[in-house]
Simulated scan of single mutants.
Amino acid sequence: MSAEHYAEEQQNEIDILQSIYPTEFVQESTDPCRFSLTIAVDDVDDIRPCTLQLTVEYTPTYPDELPVFEVALADEGNDAPLTDIDAELADADIDYLTQKTRETGEESLGMAMVFAMASSLKEVAIERLLKKTADLKRIKDQRIQKEIEAEQAKFIGTPVTRESFMEWKARFEAEMVDVARLAAEAEERQGARRAAAAAAGSLAAGAKKDSRLTGRQLFEQDKSLAMSDSRFITDGDVSVDASLFAKKEEEIQPSDHE
């Protein structure tokens, strides 16, 4: 095929592309022939809209060989806030789309292939976004389900089995034994305190009783008592020897043999 024929084939495809993509086709240069197509992915429910750009440069022998091309995300994107189920295309996705677009071109060698490459690019992008969106929805549903189960678990007690009941019963009985022992020890300590208090009271009462002396004992122990009345003695009064009374009292005490 001559160079003129290749050029004619290429111009015919450009005319067709301009009619299919009147606003999306942008001629960047004529020598070499280079142009771009803006591919909007915004007509599918359940996915976040995005825009791709396919840039193509014809080789001298196109369409008998693949054109030089590039797939990229366009600058005009979706400015709406992302939700937790909004999927976006990442670098790995662009690499995947590029490979699939190349495979489509290789299947169309020998004839105009840009339209087929652009159509394949949009379809694969939609499939990729649908799959990623479904994955995000599944992850969200799993998270919600776990949250629901965790909330319900707060109101569900542990199932009782014979083994768990016997374990609880053994622990409860051991606790009751400890409680009874502690109560007995406390009662014993309290009784000891009461006994000690009673003994201390008896000793104090005895000490108080023993500390009270008779008038005679006071008189004998404190000689000043005998002298305290000396100022009342007048002429003619006779002093008394107390020891004489003591001897006299001993003489009149009855003997044990009487």
Rank of each mutant, 00 (worst) to 15 (best):
P67D: 05
K209A: 15
S202Y: 07
K154R: 14
A186G: 04
Y96D: 07
E249F: 06
E185V: 09
M176L: 14
F232D: 11
K122M: 02
P49G: 05
I16Y: 09
A183Q: 12
R162Q: 13
S108Y: 12
E187T: 09
V41R: 02
A184S: 10
T55C: 04
E28R: 10
L244S: 05
S2R: 09
A116H: 03
D79A: 14
A192Y: 13
D222E: 14
A116P: 00
A226H: 08
L82A: 14
V114C: 10
K122E: 00
S108G: 05
Q253N: 09
D31H: 09
A196G: 06
A184V: 05
E188K: 11
Q145V: 01
N12W: 05
A196T: 10
A195H: 06
E187M: 10
L130I: 10
E167F: 04
V124K: 07
R48A: 03
G201Y: 04
D64N: 12
E250A: 13
V56S: 00
K131L: 13
L52P: 00
S202M: 08
A87F: 02
N12H: 12
G206M: 14
R128T: 14
I156K: 12
G215R: 11
V68I: 12
A90H: 07
D178E: 15
Q253H: 08
D79F: 05
A226S: 10
D222A: 10
T214I: 10
R128A: 03
K140R: 14
G105P: 00
T55M: 04
T104W: 00
E163P: 02
A186R: 14
E65F: 04
I47Q: 03
S120G: 08
S19D: 15
L66V: 05
R231S: 12
K137T: 09
D31F: 04
L213Q: 12
Q253M: 11
A196D: 12
R194A: 09
C50N: 07
K169T: 06
F115H: 14
V26L: 11
L73G: 03
C33V: 14
A196C: 05
D45V: 04
D42W: 01
G191L: 11
I16A: 14
H257T: 11
G215K: 09
R189E: 15
G157S: 11
V124A: 07
A40D: 03
S255G: 08
E185W: 04
S108N: 15
V68A: 11
D79E: 15
L182H: 05
A207K: 15
Q11W: 09
I47N: 02
V238R: 15
V160P: 01
T83S: 15
I233G: 06
Q142G: 08
V240S: 06
Q27H: 01
D256L: 14
I148L: 15
R162T: 13
D42P: 00
Q190A: 13
A199Q: 12
L129D: 01
A118D: 01
D93G: 04
S108D: 13
A200N: 11
I156G: 01
M1Q: 06
H5F: 07
K208M: 10
Q145M: 10
